[in-house]
């Protein structure tokens, strides 16, 4: 069933695939992202309670969802690498880590910028903000562990173990923080928990989620290619690849 995937464990094939997919991802990512943002900023109706500050949702929610998604993707790549000894999977993992960290930062930052007009303060120890903060720490841990090793193959394995430890912990962290939050704070934030979102708000939100996901995918594809190049700098196929690319 998964046999068609096997050739892509070879770095050269993975690189080729990425190179061919890249233009498509860049184009669709730009279009979807811009459509999502413009729709959210200009055409979606304002929230009846929060007014136009509500529009931050069109960047905040996508980044929050995808920061978690990127971490899971990273852990899955690490798992594939550790179980089936696929070196390309480790490269994918470490190519994804900085993207996830940046998106987590975006989620935190927009959360703070939304909190200021709504709650009157830049930072509250809201359950979701807190777990995003911890997620950022987990990302930084994986990145700095990877960076500390000279031997990048060993680094990939070590960072992979840490990513999996993190992903086992992530649900525990999430629920513990949620529970801790309800223990310490009253239900001051429940105005965000609306039963349902109006469709004219939901559609731009879905498109912005897709748009951000595609942007991340496009950057990821480029970073994965870089990672492959960096690790295989002296291999003959890289040399011919570079010389043909320069001739064009």
């Amino acid at each position: 069933m998964w046999k068609w995937l096997h050739p892509y464990a070879k770095t050269q094939n993975a690189y080729e695939l990425c190179r061919r997919l890249q233009p498509w991802f860049v184009i669709t990512a730009l279009i979807t992202f811009v459509v999502g943002m413009v729709w959210g900023l200009a055409f979606a109706p304002a929230d009846y309670q929060q007014g136009d500050s509500f529009r931050i949702i069109y960047i905040h929610v996508p980044s929050a969802i995808l920061s978690m998604g990127a971490y899971s993707a990273m852990a899955i790549a690490a798992f594939i690498g550790l179980v089936w000894q696929v070196r390309t999977a480790f490269m994918a993992m470490i190519a994804l880590a900085p993207i996830g960290a940046v998106v987590t930062f975006i989620a935190l930052f927009t959360g703070a910028a939304w909190g200021k007009p709504m709650w009157g303060t830049w930072w509250v120890w809201d359950a979701r903000l807190t777990s995003e903060l911890i997620l950022l720490f987990l990302y930084l841990g994986v990145i700095s562990l990877y960076a500390s090793f000279e031997d990048k193959h060993q680094a990939g394995k070590a960072a992979g173990v840490m990513a999996i430890v993190g992903v086992v912990n992530l649900p525990i962290i999430h629920f513990s923080v949620e529970w801790w939050n309800t223990l310490h704070q009253g239900a001051s934030i429940t105005k965000f928990d609306k039963p349902s979102v109006a469709p004219e708000m939901l559609w731009p939100l879905l498109i912005s989620i897709l748009g951000l996901a595609l942007v991340m995918a496009a950057i990821f594809i480029r970073r994965l290619q870089n990672e492959i190049l960096r690790r295989e700098l002296n291999r003959p196929w890289v040399q011919t690849l570079v010389s043909t690319a320069r001739e064009k």
Partner: peptide
């Protein structure tokens, strides 16, 4: 686990804290 991972590194001390403190948060809570 983290000690095992950082064994080969010369200056693993701070890194160890960086890796482990977020993981210990649920326990603390």
């Amino acid at each position: 686990i983290a000690v095992g991972l950082t064994l080969g590194l010369n200056r693993g001390g701070v890194l160890l804290a960086l890796l482990l403190l977020p993981v210990f948060i649920p326990l603390l809570i």
